[in-house]
């Protein structure tokens, strides 16, 4: 269900530069840049982007739709955001929207796992923007438990980085100790 991460990094920078150099972008480019901001969770940047989009382009229905998603995310109305994302998109935008959705879902899943002791299944569905079957599948996949209509999550831990064994860490420690000895002497 969760799609491959979509690489926006090249997109954003060149679009931002183009905008400054050319003094503006085409509607398609604005939509792309806006979606990229949503994907990267740069909501402030998205808000200001909408403010500077020329009025003549603001009537474009797809641009309006991405802006509504941005607004929903800004006000943390995730249900609404999911509903908006689930619309029909053009072929270019479809994969981007899938990527945005899965990014939000992953973030939400992680949040629920660490900050909820238990949560109603229907609430979980709303948070994740999925139907009952999908929700049950996620619960199963994550190895969580479903008990009397409540989801009991298991905290997802960041992959532990161990201190030993990594050359980079060792180098850093050596630098740190040389700083210390310099200061002390």
């Amino acid at each position: 269900m969760i799609a491959e991460p979509y690489d926006f990094s090249i997109d954003v920078e060149s679009l931002e530069n183009d905008e400054i150099q050319e003094g503006g972008l085409t509607t398609e480019q604005y939509i792309k840049l806006f979606s990229a901001y949503l994907y990267n969770n740069e909501l402030c940047a998205a808000k200001f982007l909408w403010r500077r989009v020329p009025d003549s382009l603001k009537s474009n229905p797809e641009l309006q739709k991405v802006w509504s998603i941005g607004k929903a995310l800004w006000t943390k109305h995730y249900t609404q955001a999911y509903e908006l994302i689930d619309c029909k998109w053009s072929d270019v935008l479809e994969p981007i929207m899938v990527a945005i959705k899965s990014r939000i879902q992953q973030d939400t899943l992680k949040f629920i796992s660490t900050h909820y002791e238990n949560i109603q299944l229907d609430k979980f569905q709303t948070f994740m923007g999925v139907n009952k079957e999908q929700a049950e599948r996620i619960v199963e996949r994550e190895g969580w438990t479903l008990l009397n209509g409540y989801v009991i999550p298991v905290a997802i831990n960041e992959p532990e980085l161990t201190l030993s064994g990594s050359q980079e860490i060792l180098d850093r420690l050596v630098t740190l100790s040389s700083f210390t000895s310099y200061v002390e002497n």
């Binding site: 943390k76 949040f111 660490t114 900050h115 909820y116 002791e117 238990n118 109603q120 409540y150």
Partner: peptide, 15 residues
């Protein structure tokens, strides 16, 4: 939720 997200408090919600 907003405070937990911002790292201001640490807690677990029991629904």
């Amino acid at each position: 939720i907003a405070m937990i997200e911002a790292g201001e408090i640490y807690g677990k919600i029991n629904r």
